[in-house]
Amino acid sequence: MIADAEGAEAILELAAQDPDLMTKSHIIFIPKGTNYTQALRDLKPAQFYEGPSYEAAVQRIRHVLAEAKMGLQVYLTGTEGLMGQAQNEAMQAGIPHSAIQTEHRGSVARRMQCVHCKGITEDVITDPFVCSHCGLNLFVRDHYSRRLAAYQGVCIDAEDPGNVPEPQELYT
């Protein structure tokens, strides 16, 4: 089980439904400023790890997947960015994406890849938005790459530089 922030709530709910589950579970949790850690520890999972960031946790995730056997169940919950990146690791290890369970919780922010400079901008909540790397004005294309765990951002004012519509909040 890999979770960040509010994703902890999904794990707590799951554990409440099926307490036995925890005896076989390995939880990897990135709090992102929330304080669910003690509640998760209290579930007494077989293994528990709290990481300061996804980047810090990824080596452990890879190691666990490399050692894992068929029958392993992967459960991802929390932000889209966390789920997408962890799903990619699990797919690389040989689990088809359709067999990976995900449960979105918390922020609706999107992880975006700028198609021009390839830079990833995390936690995007408006459309259009400014690429945090090359500074182009990008609109959010409804096109998702599991490999990059990101949506595609494309220059919005290429044909009319400077003509950028007012940013709207995503999902409003």
């Binding site: 494309v154 290429a158 009319d160």
Partner: peptide
């Protein structure tokens, strides 16, 4: 390519 669209898009004008 979309990669270079910010460069070639302007040609349409």
């Amino acid at each position: 390519s979309p990669e270079n669209y910010h460069k070639w898009g302007i040609q349409k004008t």
